[in-house]
């Protein structure tokens, strides 16, 4: 740890401006183009020293992967993946932090409420398009607040099995607007995996129906799998299993293809070394998705996400 300060050539400090000046000075010697190795050492030292809690006496940093492992452990139903936010991601504004008093213009939230609670509007594609058009979306605080509201409303609708009927293209329009498909990781961290699966699968179907080129044509597979699936020959469920099968062809019989995390050497941690990660929570069989994906099948709700495959 003291090495880091040595690399920067200064005494330990929490003065960020001083750290940055030292970094900038050392950068003249370890230029990224001429001394990549030296630069990387310097950069890592700089980043560590710039962490708020990085003082010589501070306790060692928590391994960020520990949380992930915890997350992967079988959680109680319903709370599956939402427990721990991923540490590397900067926190996004929470809905509470951006409630209407921050918004100079609460009209977006009102518009959402009206749309979401009025069945005739929910069925109207143009109502969705109108809702998603306009300059007020370029107020980022308002946008995040409404986005969070939309996601949590839809999630609670999904988990309570209220089956609100919405226009078939609505989830596609929302996805195109918020770019959820391209940041699924973040959504899985914050919302129920089953809900996110459902949302993204619907968005993709809507996109393909509307001739959008932003989605792969192979159907999206749900994130979580039953443990039987992988050995029975359909790796990721749905017909993307076929593409994997055809891709690996005869290799499949010969060897097992993939490898497991063992250790994360650059973190110097053994946290990854468990070769047998706990099984992820089991999702309902994939046939569930072949029905009307725009709303969950009522019978499924009794077991709740995370248990359905048990029978």
């Amino acid at each position: 740890m003291s090495d880091d300060w040595e690399i920067l050539g200064i005494d330990p400090t929490d003065d960020l401006a001083q750290i940055r000046r030292a970094y900038s000075r050392a950068l003249r010697i370890h230029r990224p183009d001429t001394d990549p190795k030296g630069f990387q050492r310097l950069r890592e030292a700089y980043e560590r020293c710039s962490e708020p809690s990085y003082a010589p006496s501070a306790p060692p940093k928590m391994d960020p992967t520990a949380d992930l492992l915890e997350m992967a452990a079988p959680p109680p139903p319903r709370t599956e993946t939402r427990s721990a936010p991923a540490p590397p991601e900067p926190p996004r504004p929470t809905p509470l932090a951006a409630t209407p008093e921050i918004l100079d213009d609460p009209s977006l939230l009102l518009a959402w409420d009206t749309l979401w609670s009025d069945p005739s509007k929910r069925w109207d594609r143009r109502a969705w398009e109108r809702f998603l058009t306009g300059d007020h979306w370029w107020n980022l605080d308002a946008r995040h607040a409404v986005e969070d509201q939309i996601l949590s409303d839809m999630e609670s609708d999904w988990s309570r099995m209220e089956n609100r009927a919405i226009h078939n293209d609505a989830k596609f329009l929302l996805d195109r607007h918020f770019g959820w498909w391209k940041r699924d990781q973040e959504l899985y961290e914050r919302f129920l995996a089953g809900f996110v699966d459902d949302l993204l699968i619907c968005a993709q179907r809507g996109g393909l129906r509307n001739g959008s080129e932003d989605y792969p044509t192979a159907p999206r597979a749900p994130l979580l799998q039953g443990p039987g699936d992988a050995t029975s020959g359909s790796d990721t469920g749905g017909s993307s299993g076929e593409s994997i099968l055809s891709k690996i062809g005869w290799w499949r019989g010969l060897v097992l293809l993939m490898v497991l995390i063992r250790a994360c050497s650059y973190l110097g941690s053994d946290a990854h070394s468990s070769p047998s990660r706990p099984a992820p929570p089991v999702l309902p069989p994939k046939q569930w998705y072949s029905g009307s994906v725009d709303r969950p099948i009522p019978g499924y709700s009794e077991t709740g996400p995370g248990k359905g495959n048990a029978r």
């Binding site: 050995t231 993939m258 497991l260």
Partner: peptide, 15 residues
């Protein structure tokens, strides 16, 4: 990388 995950009981998921 594409990584396999051990789902217990000697089976794995890929992708």
């Amino acid at each position: 990388l594409d990584l396999a995950e051990d789902t217990g009981g000697g089976s794995f998921t890929t992708g």
